[in-house]
Design a binder for these strands. Sequence first.
DNA 1: GTCTATATCTAGATAGAC
DNA 2: GTCTATCTAGATATAGAC
Lengths: 191, 191
Amino acid sequence: MRYSKTHKEETRRKLLDSSRALVKKGGFGSTGVDALMSAIGMTAGAFYSHFPSKQALLREVVREEMEHSIALLHPAADASGQQARKTVRMYLDPAHARHPEAGCVLPAMGAELARVDPQVRATIESGLKHMHAAWREVLGDDDAAWSVMAQFVGALVLARTVKSEVARKRILEANRRHIERLLDGVEPELP
Amino acid sequence: MRYSKTHKEETRRKLLDSSRALVKKGGFGSTGVDALMSAIGMTAGAFYSHFPSKQALLREVVREEMEHSIALLHPAADASGQQARKTVRMYLDPAHARHPEAGCVLPAMGAELARVDPQVRATIESGLKHMHAAWREVLGDDDAAWSVMAQFVGALVLARTVKSEVARKRILEANRRHIERLLDGVEPELP
DNA sequence: GTCTATATCTAGATAGAC
DNA sequence: GTCTATCTAGATATAGAC
């Protein structure tokens, strides 16, 4: 054979990794198959050896992105809440706002995700419930957990929308401090 | 003249009102000029008598939407905070999640707004600062005001992303209760 | 498996008739 | 001011050569 056994698998992997970044940066609808393929040094025709359609790629992108976001938003529950604080600082960092391609899929694709097919939205819902359970553990409060997740996503959307760097920083810092205050109020569990 | 003096103005008004709803529902990029025009019973060619480009329409849509959203998110500051509670309940209502075309532009266009030209983003930033000042007044806390605004936007993005109606309701209700608790903690001002 | 070439479609924008 | 017709560019997807 002209290509090694693992060649297809490797190409698919490169395509997915590259595409995940591109669609988070530029949006799914406005990023063409040609752009996705030339980003890994190939031409559009080869795309269809890996996915039957652009939509099929999106499904896989969202699936992998949700796994990534769960890791990103998932605080390891420790008594002191230090892990949770680290997660908050990382998520609400201005660098995250400046680099959607490397960050969480939820604020990056937000409205577009609301229009994908129900199968994908079920995947997202399941991922969100995992994240919520983890924050519920840390905060000891069901409502507070959903509230923190909404703040994460909303703060990033707002921060990316404003023009000035100073406003971007203020929005992120305000939300970070507000969540940290919430964590301060959590009673440490007895050992 | 074949058309009355106010005809152009009226058509432009209809086009803007209709387009604001359509782009919030379907996204700006994926809603074509043809769809925008046929929604008001006209053909694509006539579009360019009113706007030099689709981008120019977007600028005006965002400008008007921000005014609308300010009104939507702007709580009248009264001592009891009843107006603020009403705003919270309205914004985080499942009906708002189900009808982006009639709701706030921020969760509906989120990521797309992050990619519009700086002039428009300055308009958005200015609008957000107005909203923030109003919530700062109600809550008496700078950070809490940004936090509530982020929760509004984030909760709606998340609620629209999940598949099941029950998850949608839980996310919105959790955020509503959490914000109401924040309002409960506000010391009423002395008369 | 990937490339080139291409079929097909849709989109933004323009020209000219009315 | 609006319509029809059309230009041009870009998109998704397919066919056949290598």
